[in-house]
Design a protein around this nucleic acid. Structure first.
Length: 177
DNA sequence: TAGGCCATCTGGTCCT
DNA sequence: AGGACCAGATGGCCTA
């Protein structure tokens, strides 16, 4: 269980008057929700040959303006990631799975979703086999296009394989892999 | 304690 | 030009 909201876990607090101390410091104000002060991260990247000095020069020449833009950019990136996480959550809610007491990870969510879609597609094709609409005369999609697309993606695979695969996967997640 | 998962920061690149 | 997107880095939390 995650006891602490992660959204407020770390925040950049750039001291606009001090740009020359590349180090990580902890704020002692709140021990329960530590707020880290990142002066400069990603050392390995900034030490790439030919790049480090340019970045340093640019930052010191533009100083505060750069820092302000960085903060705005960080905020937008957080919002973007929050949207992405909301989408993951929405996906989790529509995927049937057995491990309801534990949240699916992102990779589990994507993998299950893919196999769930395959299973549904296979089921639909099984149900509609023998009465597929004429592909040539339909331009609005429907079973024909679905069938075409499915065949392109899966060739001659047995439809039942997907149900079996999905079912197996659900059980492996159940066992907490 | 190691490993998995995650949030956040960051600089580069793409797109509008 | 500025925002969106991406991938790498980092460090915190949790569980086996």
């Amino acid at each position: 269980m995650k006891t602490k909201p992660r959204s407020t876990r770390r925040r950049l607090e750039i001291d606009l008057d001090d740009e020359e101390s590349p180090e990580l410091q902890t704020s002692s104000e709140d021990e329960n929700d530590k707020c880290y002060v990142y002066k400069e991260k990603s050392k390995s990247r900034s030490q790439e040959p030919g790049k480090s000095s340019n970045r340093r020069k640019r930052q010191s020449s533009q100083g505060k303006e750069h820092s302000v833009r960085r903060l705005e950019s960080n905020e937008r990136e957080r919002q973007r990631m929050h949207k992405l996480n909301n989408a993951f959550q929405a996906l989790r809610e529509v995927i049937p799975h057995v491990r309801a007491e534990k949240k699916l990870s992102k990779i589990e969510t994507l993998t299950l979703a893919k196999n769930y879609i395959n299973t549904l597609t296979a089921t639909i094709l099984n149900m509609s086999s023998g009465c597929l609409p004429d592909v040539q005369n339909t331009d609005s999609g429907g079973g024909g296009k679905l069938y075409q697309h499915y065949q392109q993606q899966h060739g001659e695979e047995d439809n039942d394989e997907h149900l079996e695969k999905y079912s197996t996967q659900i059980h492996s997640f159940r066992q907490g892999s």
